[in-house]
Design a protein around this nucleic acid. Structure first.
Length: 323
DNA sequence: CATTCGTCCTGATAGC
DNA sequence: TGCTATCAGGACGAAT
């Protein structure tokens, strides 16, 4: 389940393999994987073929490749005179999406959805492949628009102050140097909802999914149903700091691979799942309580149609909790 | 307006 | 063995 650290691992991997290369041809093997491209398969392919990958940029869990259109100079019309990319290939990995850099001789993956053939590079693999089992993820082409907040964000600031239109509503993430805690806290306090709902809301803070939400809440000793409008500043700082720390740890470990669906661009899994303290630990002792000599068993609750893992001792349920 | 809910999907697994 | 039911969940549009 790719969340921010996993997407960032993919982004870093892609940069060295695809930046500066030209898209020669595209096969859409399953149109469901480009359903967010409203104009259809032909238009999708037409936008990509002949374009050159200028960069690989991320905001939250959205990843995109700004494209330079070689066929369209100022004379061809439609292209920006300053030579800046106007469109991007957008990717979201959803639940099970993978972006793999593969040699063309490698047999098609079972769930290969889109194949992108790249211009020959010096010993570089020839294809970028989008593989997705559950089809919650997808690819589409989108416009690049000016950002109103200084840049796309992420860990590697793009030199271009442009953001993919479909990612413009997404908030900055806790690892982003330009993330504003004050803005986050102000907006959090106005919400009438539970803390985990807020952490999962990509418009408030991005990059956090179910796994890292549970880990951040556990580290901060806060319950998922805690009403956001009662959170003290120190508590909000604690949970945001925990989210940042756990995602930095995961990034250093190459990402989490809980069920082997997530892999980096070379198909290798991260190993952060060995370090999880909450997610998937139902019925096992709470590590923090055990270290303090207290007996406590991690529990799992259904919440928002997904699982939430908490320690009943160090993350007590609030009396006026909001599910 | 803010918030919550239903929907999209497949494969692993449990239970009979 | 082979069937069915259940579960996993990110993001968006619809509903409240």
């Amino acid at each position: 389940m790719p969340e921010l650290p996993e997407v960032e691992v993919v982004r870093r991997g892609l940069v060295s393999w695809v930046r500066g290369r030209t898209i020669e041809s595209v096969d859409v093997l399953d149109p469901r994987s480009i359903r967010r491209h409203a104009l259809g398969t032909e238009d999708f392919i037409g936008n990509l073929e002949g374009a050159t990958v200028a960069d690989v940029v991320r905001r939250g869990k959205f990843l995109w490749l700004p494209l330079l259109d070689a066929s369209a100079g100022p004379a061809a019309g439609g292209a920006p005179a300053n030579g800046r990319p106007a469109i991007a290939l957008m990717a979201h990995l959803g639940m099970s999406g993978q972006l793999l850099v593969q040699d063309g001789a490698v047999p098609d993956e079972k769930h290969l959805k889109v194949r992108i053939r790249l211009s020959p590079g010096d010993g570089l693999p020839g294809q970028l492949r989008f593989v997705d089992q559950r089809i919650f993820g997808g690819l589409f082409v989108t416009s690049l628009v000016p950002t109103d907040d200084g840049g796309p964000g992420g860990l590697a600031e793009s030199p271009l102050p442009l953001i993919a239109e479909e990612a413009a509503h997404i908030a900055r993430d806790p690892l982003d140097p330009a993330f504003s805690f004050d803005l986050f806290y102000r907006r959090l306090r106005k919400r009438k909802t539970g803390l985990k709902r807020a952490l999962l809301d990509q418009g408030l803070v991005s990059g956090i999914g179910n796994i890292y939400a549970d880990e951040a809440l556990w580290r901060a000793r806060l319950h998922f149903a805690r009403p956001t409008d009662t959170l003290r500043r120190a508590e909000a700082e604690r949970v945001l700091g925990s989210a940042r720390d756990v995602m930095l740890d995961a990034l250093a470990a190459g990402g989490t691979s809980f069920d082997s669906l997530y892999v980096n661009v070379n198909g290798a899994s991260g190993y952060f799942d060995r370090s999880l303290n909450a997610y998937g630990r139902e019925g096992q002792p709470c590590q923090r309580c055990a270290a303090a000599g207290i007996h406590s068993v991690m529990r799992r609750d259904q919440f928002m149609n997904r699982s939430s893992h908490t320690c009943p001792v160090c993350q007590p349920r609030p009396r006026n909790g909001r599910w």
